[in-house]
Each structure stands twice: as structure tokens, then as C-alpha cells.
Amino acid sequence: MKTSRLLSPVFEASGDASSSSQFTLLELVQNSIEARPGSLDAETETEVTSLSGGEIVEMPQFRQIESRPNEFFAAIQEWEGVVTGVYADFFTANLYDMKGPADEISELAEISYDDIDPADRHKVQEGAIFRWLIGHSRTRSDTFSRKWMIYFRRAARRPISDPVIELPPQLRHMITTQIDAE
């Protein structure tokens, strides 16, 4: 008996990666490995096991082997971006270097739709947040190449954590009187 299971390649540009919004692609790959210790890629030998009822069955003995993704990717440049304009052949974006300070734009980009996964085309909308990674990949067969990927992030679904702003009654009355009474 021999079974095999290959890990899905996570390298390919895909919106699925955005479901784990806290992680870089590299972290996603690492987590993927951690989640599958000793994958059931079984080189098996049989073992005779006695069950409580006295029945004798043959059980495969699984030999744990180290699992590896088909392709390993290491980012050497990572930006977070915000779409600022959507045009026929490209979109414009502000880029924030992930190694730079928060909220400080480092670069402006015009990104061709040719450079994103066609399945993500509908996600390109003004204000959409994405990650752009450039790095190198190495396959199981040790082929080295430089690649990039762009993926769009999913909205966070955390509970409202900011303090609720409540105006004092007098101020609230002044605001609503001035605006809503118009």
C-alpha cells in the first residue's frame, strides 16, 4: 500500500493567500509545513496488530518523512499597496515598504493587469489593499528563479476595538442642530 499527497503550491499568485492576512507568503509556506508534521506520504510496511476482539489485521506502518512544498519562496522586497486609480490597462497605487515606517508612502506604481492573477482582476478597486512580493523561488528539483506575486487582502473581521466616540450632549446637540436642521 502506498499513498502520496503533495502539498498544494502556494506560490502562485492567488487571492486565497489573503485569507491569512497576517502572514507573508514565506510565513504561509512555513505555517503550511508546520500544520502537516510527518505528512502521510507513506512508504509503508505492514505490521500485525491485535485488536481487543482478538481479530488480527494488517496495519500499514507509516514512515514519517519530511514534507516540503513543491516550491519555496523567499521575499527580498515586500510592499503593501493601496489602489489609487483604476484604468483600462493598469491601475495606480501608493506603495509602502514593509521595512519602512508605517503610513509613509515610499513609491508610486502603475501596475499592469498582466502582472496580476486574472482571477484577481475584479478585486482591483480604488482603496483596495494588496501585497506585492518580489523574491526568489526554488523548486524541489532545485530550480532557482526570481519571481513576484501580487495578492489582494481580505477585510479584517475583528470586533470593534477602538473606543466608541460619544459626544457630550451639548456638543452633539450643537452639531446636529447645525447640520441636520438645514
Binding site: E80, Y96, A102, R153, A155, D162
Partner: peptide, 13 residues
């Protein structure tokens, strides 16, 4: 309040 709780952690606020 809506948008402060929708943007995932990162460099973009």
C-alpha cells in the same frame, strides 16, 4: 469605526 476595523494589520492604515 467601520473602516478602522476592516483594514488588516500592515503598513497601510
Amino acid at each position: 469605526a467601520v473602516y478602522n476595523n476592516r483594514v488588516p494589520t500592515g503598513k497601510v492604515s
